[in-house]
Design a protein around this nucleic acid. Sequence first.
DNA 1: CGCTAGTCCTGTCTGC
DNA 2: TGCAGACAGGACTAGC
Length: 268
Amino acid sequence: MPELPEVETIVRALQSNVGAGIKHIEIKREDILRLQEFSVLELQGQNIKNIRRRGKFLIFELGRDLNLIFHLGMSGRFYMLASAEEPAEKHVHVIVHLNNGINLVYQDPRRFGGVWLVKERERFFRNMGREPLSPDFSATYLEDILKYRKAPVKNLLLNQNLISGIGNIYADESLFAAGIRPDRPAGSLSRQDIKKLHRSIRKVLRQGIELRGTTFRDYRDAFNESGGFQDYLKVYGRHNQPCPQCGQPIERIRIGGRSTHFCTNCQR
DNA sequence: CGCTAGTCCTGTCTGC
DNA sequence: TGCAGACAGGACTAGC
């Protein structure tokens, strides 16, 4: 569910908790822990040194070799609650009790997400692709990862080992903005196509962040509130509705098992 | 190695 | 109203 702009929105709101200490952590279901390189108890009494994002991962840095990492999967939420309050919803798997009067709540009905207790961040993320909003994500890099490949370009945009953070919504929206069909073999893109796609990806992700993410169904930010980008979607979720550019009905097909939305007229 | 299909889960919506 | 089936912002894996 949450892609780069959604996780980024959450991370920014959580910054107010940098410096706070962890009183204790409630793990309500043990199997939500995907990796334990140290014990949960070791996190008690630690101060939050930094909160950051890598791809779609949410990272709490608590020390040199102490990282508490969350992934929200398809249906995950991560929000702040005054410590006096109790989370109302079902499927709350983790509550981080801070000493600043705030509890951090991790909820994920489908449990495609998870929690990792990681010592070395660099090792954990060593196979992750480049950050699409960082300077090292250049048009040349995009060309390098797309050329000679015959998989649909959309599939490669979703591959987190190539580019980190793009999901189904922003892939479809970026390809629309670039005027490129999502089922084009990646290797068939011209240099011009790639430049346009490169610009489009960055533009769409930045817009997504600016509007505080897309709430299509589940997503809520760190204040448990909806985002705003859903009102600006041009193709995603708009099957059979008129293309905002040419008026033709938006097509929906399946690529790599994911539903894919595009305009047969504006994207070629 | 590149690529596709299947799998993990629960909740919600659609159509009969 | 009930029920079956499809579908959902993700990502691993097995197998061709």
